[in-house]
Amino acid sequence: MSITVFFLAAAVWLYLRRVRSCRTGAGASAAARARQLRTLAVRLAELFGIRTQAGALADRFEAGAEGERRTARRLAPLRLRGWTLLHDRALPYGRANVDHLAISPRGVVLVLDTKRWSARWPVSVQAGRLLHGGRDVTHRLDGLQHEASTVAGVLGVPVIPVAVIDGPALRGEPLELDGVRIIPAEYAARRLRTLAAAHRGYGRRIADQADRLLPPYANGPAR
């Protein structure tokens, strides 16, 4: 590769990184993390067919970002029914974010975390554990439980944690583990309506508070 081509590629990469860093919305923080990992050196390595650990991690973040965008599109029809949907929101402290916050017209609050996993194996709950095929993935709900607990503290109302599974089939529905509802991504909007109908709401003010107290993560965690 000539010096001219190298510097041209570097200039294009820096420009695209600067433009894309301003994006917000579903999957924005995961996509931003992928861009941070896929440095110029990593991109050049990939150009020559060299796989790196940072590149593999960037792939996972990009897949996660696409999963969040897919969930956002599936939830979008809820807006026509008066729901408030907030995507990729920062928690008041730390570096964690909320993938999706869905608030029903009556003020039922649900925190959603998209899990985009391989469709090769089904997801099930057995003996108090979450399994993806034969693999125990229970620990992958820890972050969601923390996020729901934090949002509940911020808003001062109960919050329902929901894991949205994108890819695998769910075996033995309805699935629930330690208070976390586990739903298929393709039916996410319908399942949220059912969940919200079974819980007490806290009024429209909750949506306004959530939008104000949990800003877009792309702007950085609130302090």
Rank of each mutant, 00 (worst) to 15 (best):
M1W: 04
F7M: 12
R17D: 13
C22S: 11
S29L: 00
A30E: 15
A31S: 10
A34G: 14
R35C: 03
Q36T: 05
E46K: 08
A54R: 13
A56I: 02
F61W: 14
A65C: 07
E66A: 14
R69V: 09
R69M: 01
A76T: 01
L80S: 11
L85A: 06
L85E: 06
H87N: 09
L91F: 09
Y93L: 01
G94A: 11
N97F: 05
N97Y: 02
V98W: 05
V98L: 14
H100N: 06
L101P: 08
I103F: 04
P105E: 01
G107Q: 02
V109Y: 02
K115C: 03
W117H: 04
W117F: 09
Q126N: 09
Q126W: 11
G128F: 06
G133H: 04
R135D: 09
G143S: 14
G143V: 06
G153K: 10
P161I: 03
A169E: 15
L175K: 03
G179A: 15
E186Q: 11
E186S: 13
A189C: 15
R193I: 12
R193M: 15
A196M: 15
G201H: 12
Y202S: 07
G203F: 10
G203A: 07
A207V: 07
Q209H: 12
Q209W: 13
P216Y: 10
G220L: 10
